Simulated assay, not measured.
Amino acid sequence: MAALLSSAIPLSRNGVSLQFSHTKRPQFHSPTRVFCSASRDGHETKEELSQWKQAKNVACGILAVWAVTTAASPVIAAGQRLPPLSTDPKRCEVAFVGNTIGQANGVYDKAIDLRFCDYTNEKSNLKGKSLAAALMSGAKFDGADMSEVVMSKAYAAGASFKGTDFTNAVLDRVNFEKANLQGALFVNSVLSGSTFNEANLDGAVFEDTIIGYIDLQKICRNTSINDEGRAALGCR
């Protein structure tokens, strides 16, 4: 059953009231509806009426922008299913272009679906690309140069990154659950908010890694990290 959250923002005593509702559904995108309503006492002058209309338009515009960006931001929560695999025959080549709209916020107009694509030993076309919010589960990036890549909010569960170079990469809020990261290079990489549940981190190199304290505690529970990696991370 869908849960409906709603609220109102009054701008003045007899002015504009903004109402919005956000419907939570077990989907990749959550549809957002925006409603703008207003109440007046019927005795405004033309100048007051004009100001009232301007305030309404500005406020509704701000809320509409919020709604669009929120709906486009791909947050994959537990229990939610991924969208069907893209039928675009060139979907794997999209990685060489990347996400040209959103970066750290993960906003996009079309999902970057790289699931089950093979980029083994790709040394030039992935470097520095923005793959924010990309779907990567089941894909192979073994030996690839992914230095300076932005992968914020990417879904890489079950993907293979054996020996992948993530030097200077932004890997915040990435789901690496059950991914194979043997020998991956995390040099000066941002890992804040990322999860590594049951991931294989044997031989992974952690050097000058940027990670939050809570995230550090979580990654240190991964028993596949060798002693050298644990020392570099500061695991106790």
Rank of each mutant, 00 (worst) to 15 (best):
Q182W: 01
F166G: 10
Q182D: 03
A139H: 12
V174P: 10
Y119H: 05
V170W: 11
M136F: 05
L181N: 03
R173W: 12
V149S: 04
G128R: 03
L181M: 15
V149C: 14
N180C: 00
N125P: 00
N99T: 06
G203E: 05
L171G: 04
G163K: 14
I101G: 00
S189W: 01
I112E: 02
L191S: 04
F176I: 11
V170K: 14
D145I: 10
N197M: 03
G163M: 14
F141T: 12
A144R: 04
A78T: 11
M136T: 11
V107E: 10
A184W: 05
V97S: 08
G163V: 09
F116M: 01
F176E: 06
A204G: 04
V75Y: 10
K110M: 05
S152G: 06
V149F: 03
G138V: 12
T195A: 12
L185Y: 11
E177A: 15
E93I: 00
S194K: 05
K153T: 07
G143A: 11
P83M: 09
G193E: 07
F161P: 08
Q80N: 13
C117N: 01
S147N: 10
R173M: 04
A179L: 03
N168M: 07
A132C: 01
D142H: 07
T195W: 00
E177S: 13
F206Y: 06
F206T: 09
F176N: 04
A199H: 08
D165E: 13
L114S: 10
L171V: 13
V94N: 02
A184I: 05
V107C: 01
V149H: 08
N99S: 08
A159Q: 12
R115Q: 05
M146N: 06
R115V: 10
V205G: 00
V150G: 02
T164P: 07
I112Y: 02
E93V: 01
L171C: 14
V97T: 15
K90R: 12
V75T: 10
D113N: 01
N197H: 01
A104P: 00
E148M: 12
S124P: 00
D113K: 02
Y155E: 09
R115E: 10
N197A: 12
A111W: 02
T195G: 06
L181T: 03
Q103V: 01
L85F: 07
G158L: 09
R91T: 06
N180S: 13
V150A: 01
S147I: 10
G203Q: 05
T87D: 13
V190C: 00
S189R: 00
A154S: 15
V174Y: 09
L171M: 15
E148P: 00
V150E: 06
G79I: 12
G102H: 03
L126D: 08
S152T: 14
E148V: 05
F116W: 09
E198Y: 12
G183P: 07
V107I: 15
D109M: 06
F186C: 05
F116E: 14
N180F: 02
I76S: 01
V150M: 04
D109A: 13
G98F: 05
F141Y: 03
L171I: 14
K153N: 14
